[in-house]
Design a protein around this nucleic acid. Structure first.
Lengths: 130, 130
DNA sequence: TAGATACATCGGAAATTATCGAAATATCAA
DNA sequence: TTGATATTTCGATAATTTCCGATGTATCTA
């Protein structure tokens, strides 16, 4: 709101990208840490990190550090512009996003250590195909 | 609505561009012909034409041919998605757009011939700096 | 018909963006 | 401290986008 043309275009560019829009829609269901996002979307961590950087620059997501982990979420609704609300609502309604949400549910029930910590993740994977 | 990720990204890309967003916001105030848009924004006709092509592909604007002129307008509101409404509302509120709207008022009162037809336009320009 | 003109498309060089492995940074745990 | 690890930043190529003059197309008028 009350911004200029350039900044509005930058904000729109931030979501004009498949991965970045997927990440935003994913966070629409609640806070996640970076490795959870990478796990759900099955993309390199560096790509997720860069996507989040752009979404942060656009003012769409917040970050919260907790030790080694960085938790990201959509900015709180009082400050949310009508623009973000419209984009988020429509993105979350996409068919592709429902699959992502299913994977989020799994990842959340497993918990962060099983998803993000290498050793526990490896152990879980091993147990999966005995 | 009820679209896929790819098409939503394409629609967002269509407005992630200064000229295209300006054109959309301009049409938010009402129908104009292509040459009026070019005159108001002071950009080459080919650029306006290309901008409108993208906005049309994205489903944001309609066209209506009348002889040599092509009139363009924002798609009618019943079919308008929440996404377009949010983008249009925010774009029309930008400071840059108020200046554009002032120029639109001038252009509309002059009428299409004085703005678009080369001979009348030249006569008007000549009269302006006698 | 011929000329004028509103608009669309084309060409193609310049600028921007995407992508992801590799290296850097920061935090934990032993 | 040393090693492990979650995340960010860097590098560098590939792909895409931007931009506008030149050309093409369709419609008007004389």
């Amino acid at each position: 709101m009350t911004q200029n043309l350039r900044s509005m275009v930058e904000r729109l560019k931030a979501v004009s990208h498949p991965l970045r829009l997927r990440v935003l829609a994913l966070l629409g269901s609640g806070e996640l840490c970076v490795c959870q996002v990478a796990e759900v979307l099955q993309v390199p961590q560096s790509s997720v990190s860069e996507a989040l950087r752009e979404l942060r620059r656009a003012g769409f997501v917040n970050e919260r550090k907790e030790g080694r982990w960085v938790f990201v979420s959509v900015v709180s609704h009082p400050n949310t512009s009508q623009l973000l609300q419209g984009i988020l609502a429509e993105a979350m309604a996409l068919v592709e996003m429902q699959q992502d949400r299913e994977r989020v549910a799994d990842v959340k029930t497993l918990g962060i250590p099983a998803v993000c910590c290498k050793v526990e993740k490896a152990a879980k994977a091993e147990a999966a195909h005995v």
